[in-house]
């Protein structure tokens, strides 16, 4: 089902969100909200259990300080399947979720059996959330049925774990493709059973392809979510990932969510940032609001 998308006006609308001026109270509140929505992520070949443990600590307590009201934890820690168990232990009882990329992340170019097994193993190790990649090769060659079928199978393999479907919009290139893939992913996930709020997300990028998340791409995906909600009453989550590095950018995204989907979506249950360096910039801004002066980069722990 093709829906025409006009790039010029999408960009104009996306830019309009960046013109909102978020100050004082609303900045303070927005920064905390953004912090609580972060999926703190490390996806490198050189990741070690120690790095993941320190990341988990950062996730629970982003900043060791006396601050009122206390800062929220981030939403989740996102790692490769091999480190899920480490993360799970470190986050025990904290309320912070463990998210694992799977399905042959980041390319998805493996036999479906391997990809499904990847999911099953990650879930078995304790992943609360699975970030899957769609088969872009199949999508771009027009085999949308195949893509949808695979997504459905992955959702079944997830069991009770939540599912985030990565479209890798940087490889889809056009906004029309982004819209088609969004609709397709949502419908495929829904085909396997009812979706409770926040059980299924669509996500822009792996972070391994440039460009990653952009505001126009995210806007088109939010519109797909909005239209699906109008049609079915089901709330799908959204996760822009990669490229969101500053607190200011994060606030722009929150404005976009608020004005496209409404206040209901302004919760970590339905909106996430896939990011790592964003956390410290948000902390810097929170501290600036508190003390009036900017912190140095080394004032906050790296992970």
């Amino acid at each position: 089902m093709r829906k025409p998308i006009d790039t010029v006006m999408v960009e104009q609308r996306a830019t309009s969100f960046t013109r909102r001026s978020i100050k004082t109270e609303s900045k303070q509140q927005g920064l905390r909200l953004a912090l609580s929505m972060i999926d703190l992520t490390t996806l490198e070949g050189k990741d070690s259990p120690e790095k993941v443990r320190s990341l988990c600590h950062k996730a629970i307590t982003p900043w060791e300080c006396e601050i009122e009201p206390p800062l929220p934890s981030v939403a989740a820690v996102c790692v490769y399947p091999s480190l899920v168990q480490v993360a799970k232990r470190a986050l025990e009882g904290s309320g912070v979720s463990v998210a694992s990329v799977a399905t042959g992340f980041p390319s998805g170019q493996y036999p479906i059996a391997v990809r499904l097994n990847d999911v099953v193993e990650a879930v078995k190790s304790g992943a609360d959330e699975i970030d899957m990649v769609i088969n872009r090769g199949a999508f771009l060659s027009g085999c949308t049925e195949e893509v949808a079928d695979e997504i459905a199978q992955v959702r079944v393999a997830c069991g009770k774990s939540h599912l985030k479907i990565i479209l890798e919009t940087g490889e889809l290139e056009t906004l029309e493709n982004v819209r088609i893939a969004s609709d397709l992913a949502i419908r495929a996930a829904a085909s396997t059973g009812p979706i409770n709020d926040g059980e299924v997300f669509i996500k822009t990028s792996t972070g391994k392809v440039s460009p990653a998340a952009t505001m126009p791409v995210t806007l088109v995906m939010l519109e797909a979510i909005r239209d699906y909600y109008e049609e079915t009453g089901v709330r799908i989550g959204m996760k822009p990932a990669g490229g969101i590095k500053t607190a200011k950018q994060a606030l722009h995204y929150l404005v976009m969510v608020k004005e496209t989907l409404g206040d209901d979506w302004l919760t970590p249950n339905l909106f996430r940032f896939g990011a790592s360096s964003l956390t410290n910039d948000v902390l810097r801004q929170i501290r600036k609001q508190q003390t009036g002066s900017y912190a140095a980069t080394y004032d906050f722990s790296e992970a």
């Binding site: 100050k23 609303s26 609580s36 929220p72 309320g95 609360d128 206040d263």
Partner: peptide, 19 residues
């Protein structure tokens, strides 16, 4: 089950005056 974040923000997020 996934997200029972310990202190979720519940207040509605509004834009403060930015004169």
């Amino acid at each position: 089950m996934a997200t029972t974040n310990k202190n979720q923000n519940t207040a509605k997020w509004e834009y403060s005056p930015a004169l």
